[in-house]
Write a protein that binds this DNA or RNA. Structure first.
Lengths: 203, 203
DNA sequence: GTCTATATTGTGATAGAC
DNA sequence: GTCTATCACAATATAGAC
């Protein structure tokens, strides 16, 4: 009973995540989700009233994965460059494990920005903390003066973009060679970190 | 006749571009395109046989806009930092004029990467040229040693990401204030250029 | 070229047996 | 809880008058 319930629900959620992440809300078909879960359409509606409700569940789950969980890293007393390295490494590792999450989240948010409203409770995103530390380091003369907001966007951009632009980068720069592309993503962890450090450090 | 033809065709293309860019292929409705063009559905099929054909036309057009047209800049004999400034400024200006193009292209490519195959003739994308120049400058000791591919991706990422991630950045960093966000985008032209220059220049 | 009306298929959702 | 059968409607596409 509860065994079976949870099991089926998990099957559905896994299948739904796969299909929604590949096709998006509009492109996904309930039939395809049912097939991938090894059940029939009616069961989908039994567990999740509607396609929208099922999607909402998947979206929330994916959104959590899209936001790097680095709050304890940020509030730690490590030096700034170590934090940056930690951020980039953690985030890219997570993205490599969930490569379709970024384009999914960003695409759906662009099609329906209102989703952000229903999601901003209980997340505790505080870029201000990081921005404040950056400003402190600038004032102390540890790093070159930069606009903290631009630095944050630059970090995010360099980490996330290879996943959002995967087909184009892989196609143009690597002739669609998957192995080369995986290597490239691995390299980026040190490459991005060094790039940022060089941009920030005072001579 | 030809006057009216071209006029109606233009109306359709403009409407289709708006709707497809906002909603994507799967989310767009022929009815909505017809309404926005001020005509009826049947005419859409008269001018473009099917939804897919109409979409293909829009996609190709948008894809051209997504690729920065900077070949003459790249092959010029300007110094490397000037080229980088030129690239960033040109590209961001173009993206600000067409802010929905990046997420549209990248989202559709992720949903159907095969589109890249039908599009790679007559584009003459040669990142190798730029990569070669970067390598030359490194060998000459003008800039710090970096992997040219990573540098190119970093440049693209920092330019494009604010448009792909617009809802999230605008929401979290600017409390959805449109004016502040436009200012932020303008700032990025110098901010990105300086960031790259600092990361590259030898002491 | 442009319209109205309609055919046809696809898709989310429900009814009801087991 | 799970299934089959079916409803109701949405959406692409076409026929045919003007």
């Amino acid at each position: 009973m509860t065994e079976k319930e949870n099991n089926t629900e998990k099957l559905i959620l896994d299948a739904a995540k796969n299909v929604f992440l590949r096709k998006g809300l509009d492109g996904a078909r309930m039939q395809e989700i049912a097939d991938e879960a090894g059940i029939n359409k009616a069961l989908l509606h039994y567990y999740f009233r509607s396609k929208d409700k099922l999607f909402e569940t998947i979206f929330q789950e994916a959104f959590k994965q899209f936001l790097p969980r680095v709050s304890d890293l940020i509030v730690s007393d490590k030096p700034i460059f170590e934090k940056i390295w930690g951020f980039v490494e953690t985030y890219i590792d997570m993205l490599m494990a969930n490569p379709h999450v970024p384009i999914f989240i960003l695409s759906e948010l662009n099609h329906n920005p209102d989703r952000l409203i229903n999601i901003f409770q209980g997340f505790g995103i505080q870029p201000q903390f990081f921005a404040a530390q950056i400003q402190k380091e600038i004032d102390a003369g540890v790093i070159r003066p930069v606009n903290p907001r631009h630095l944050i966007v630059n970090m995010l951009a360099m980490c996330v973009f290879p996943f959002v632009g995967r087909p184009i980068i892989k196609g143009i720069l690597f002739q669609n060679d998957d192995v080369q592309y995986q290597v490239f993503l691995q390299e980026r962890k040190t490459e991005i970190t060094l790039f940022i450090i060089n941009a920030l450090k005072v001579e």
